[in-house]
Computed example of a mutant assay.
Amino acid sequence: MSAEAIKLSYWGNAESQEMKHLNNIVLKLSFRSSRSILWEEKFLAHFLKGLGEPSLNIAMYHSRTAEQEIRNNTLSVFPYFTVTVFVITVFCLASVTLGDCVRSKTWLGLVAIISSALASLTAFGILMHCGVPMIGMNMAAPFLMLGIGIDDAFVTLSAWHRTRPQDSVRERMAQTYAESAVSISITSITNMISFFVGTFTYFSSVRVFCLYLGISVLMTYVWHITLFGACLALSGRAEKQQLHNITCKRVKSSSES
């Protein structure tokens, strides 16, 4: 008797329990019991060790296959994140720098990056304080928030540059927020809804990842409206006083020279 393929199925006790401190939240994350996971790991290790036949091709699918593959994919591209952050930072600083040394907003490009980083730290701190576990996939969240934060900064600065330089800083800020806040709010809400929908998936790691992303988007929006807006107002005052955008020394703008 011969066979080209054999499928062996082993069913373990995948008990679940609600996470601590999340009883009042609609989302309930389930995690398998440590005993079931320990048995699964030991079984797979002994199974692979016992089958040393090189002619056999073994393919396994267990309760944590999807989670492990997603985690491995995230860790495999992690070394490239440093280069990505550097390129994004240079691009951001170059994009907000104009030919006019007074009207340029070079420091605001750096503020946009810092604001995104603070948003991720705030979201991580809140969720970890609430008892939500930290997984390897979450390390991709700060880089996603970096792109969202920089995009919001570009939208805000674009609205600022369309205002009249002769107006007061208060009036220019009002016009800037009236034009950009709607766009930023809509995109932030749609992003949050998209990520929160992902918390209803079957895989617990994807639930945690989407929860971290959803809260991170919310914190990115809050930090951008508050911190970035305040720094923009300070930069507007410096522009009103004809100060250099980097050295803060009094100079003449290119339009007056």
Score class of each variant (00 low, 15 high):
residue 175 Q to K: 13
residue 22 L to H: 03
residue 241 Q to L: 14
residue 250 R to P: 04
residue 95 S to E: 10
residue 148 I to R: 03
residue 180 S to E: 11
residue 233 A to P: 06
residue 227 L to V: 14
residue 122 T to A: 05
residue 146 L to G: 02
residue 252 K to E: 14
residue 157 L to Q: 05
residue 136 G to S: 00
residue 97 T to W: 10
residue 112 A to Q: 07
residue 46 H to Y: 10
residue 25 I to T: 07
residue 52 G to E: 10
residue 71 R to M: 14
residue 98 L to R: 06
residue 43 F to A: 10
residue 30 S to I: 11
residue 124 F to L: 01
residue 227 L to Y: 11
residue 131 G to C: 03
residue 71 R to V: 12
residue 21 H to I: 07
residue 197 V to T: 07
residue 181 A to F: 05
residue 50 G to C: 04
residue 257 S to K: 13
residue 44 L to P: 03
residue 243 L to H: 06
residue 163 T to W: 13
residue 88 I to M: 13
residue 46 H to T: 12
residue 177 Y to L: 12
residue 238 A to Q: 09
residue 137 M to P: 05
residue 23 N to G: 15
residue 51 L to E: 11
residue 172 R to V: 13
residue 87 V to Q: 05
residue 25 I to Y: 10
residue 222 V to W: 03
residue 164 R to V: 08
residue 217 V to G: 01
residue 99 G to W: 15
residue 257 S to A: 15
residue 195 F to C: 03
residue 238 A to E: 11
residue 256 E to G: 03
residue 226 T to C: 06
residue 62 H to Q: 11
residue 177 Y to T: 07
residue 124 F to V: 02
residue 119 A to P: 00
residue 208 V to A: 00
residue 197 V to R: 10
residue 162 R to H: 15
residue 112 A to R: 02
residue 216 S to I: 04
residue 37 I to V: 09
residue 5 A to G: 10
residue 177 Y to S: 12
residue 176 T to F: 02
residue 155 V to F: 06
residue 135 I to S: 05
residue 101 C to R: 13
residue 198 G to N: 04
residue 144 L to C: 00
residue 239 E to N: 12
residue 217 V to H: 00
residue 89 T to L: 13
residue 69 E to D: 09
residue 41 E to R: 15
residue 177 Y to G: 13
residue 176 T to P: 00
residue 168 S to L: 11
residue 49 K to C: 06
residue 239 E to M: 15
residue 45 A to S: 14
residue 77 V to Q: 08
residue 211 L to E: 04
residue 62 H to F: 12
residue 90 V to I: 15
residue 11 W to Y: 11
residue 151 D to H: 08
residue 32 R to G: 04
residue 180 S to T: 06
residue 169 V to T: 14
residue 220 T to F: 01
residue 155 V to S: 12
residue 74 T to E: 12
residue 183 S to H: 04
residue 74 T to S: 15
residue 136 G to T: 02
residue 78 F to T: 09
residue 113 I to P: 00
residue 73 N to C: 02
residue 78 F to N: 13
residue 240 K to H: 15
residue 153 A to L: 11
residue 209 F to G: 02
residue 68 Q to M: 06
residue 129 H to N: 03
residue 17 Q to H: 15
residue 151 D to Q: 08
residue 236 G to H: 05
